[in-house]
Design a protein around this nucleic acid. Structure first.
Lengths: 171, 171
DNA sequence: TGACTTTGGTTTCATGTGAAACTATCAGCG
DNA sequence: CGCTGATAGTTTCACATGAAACCAAAGTCA
């Protein structure tokens, strides 16, 4: 049997802002965020794997390629928050699976232009609905307003993190 | 230099719900969630590591131990959403660092009761304020209402995921 | 032109991870 | 008691990860 998969969010009464009280992991935002993200990623990964034999890094590459403009590996790095090692490996795997192909860039010999093979395009067109359906399924517990608020909160968080990281960099 | 760390959330206009439009990774909730969680975890991990030489799994163990009730490794597993392998290793490491100690359970020879060493308690008492400060810092971009909404959304999501996983299990 | 730096991308290596196998104890039942 | 199955916890093994080293092709500047 799988390890008990409850989040142990138990009876979370509002942390009393007046007196400190003991630290409660289940109310700690980084923890909540991490658990939620891992669970969602796990669910999504299982589905992509079962249906198409694709990993999440590979899926992210497909998603960027599917957006239209021809890209190179570094273009994908910029649009996916993945490091170049991960992208390099994901593309190699997609190529090995015959879903993606690389053409030499006409004027810059360092770049390789990535594009779908016909099979790659087909997989992309089939995986997008699965992705959207999974997203809807996961969000089914939230009202439209709650969903908007969640998205907005995440975007705020991301903006804030970028600011923090930029600040940290100037050491 | 580090890989460009922008999230490429760019000009995200609301996805037009009427006509499908191309799939946009930056509006895909699992992606947003994953990026946000990884960024936050990275920030938190760096701080714990720099200040106390502690990893996130180790920190989670300390947090549970610090909650008061005497626990065993399996108790920690239940309260942290970590699998038992991770907990086992984190505890071994904490013990090697002299922050935690194990006493045999009086009546059940399989369990080991985990508790702080004096140094462990000191580290715990110092790391909690750092954790809370980091949380505040990350949330500084959000109003109180937005923060509440974000937390609520994450909790809803977690509840929903548990339901989904439970449903999936009965295969 | 030829050094020197920068950039795109891959490979290496050391580390983290979890599924599954394993050990040891316990609990139930004859 | 002694078997059988569950539970606590560790170890093994195969794989994912990312920092740093690396290679090749462009730019830069004298």
């Amino acid at each position: 049997m799988k390890p008990k998969s409850s989040v142990a969010v138990g009876p979370v009464r509002q942390r009393d802002r007046g007196e400190a009280g003991p630290f409660r992991l289940e109310a700690f935002l980084p923890y909540l965020l991490s658990v939620a993200a891992n669970r969602v990623s796990g669910l999504v990964a299982r589905r992509y794997e079962d249906a198409f034999g694709i990993t999440i890094p590979e899926w992210r590459c497909l998603a960027v390629i599917g957006e239209g403009e021809p890209t190179s590996a570094s273009g994908i790095v910029e649009r996916t928050a993945m490091d170049k090692v991960k992208v390099s490996r994901a593309l190699a795997s997609l190529q090995a699976k015959g879903l993606v192909r690389r053409a030499p860039h006409p004027t810059d010999g360092r770049l390789a232009l990535i594009s779908f093979t016909p099979r790659g395009r087909t997989v992309y067109e089939r995986i997008v609905p699965l992705a959207l359906e999974t997203e809807r399924e996961v969000l089914a517990g939230l009202s439209a307003a709650e969903e908007r608020a969640l998205r907005a909160g995440l975007l705020r968080l991301l903006a804030r993190l970028e600011a923090l990281e930029r600040a940290q960099e100037g050491d």
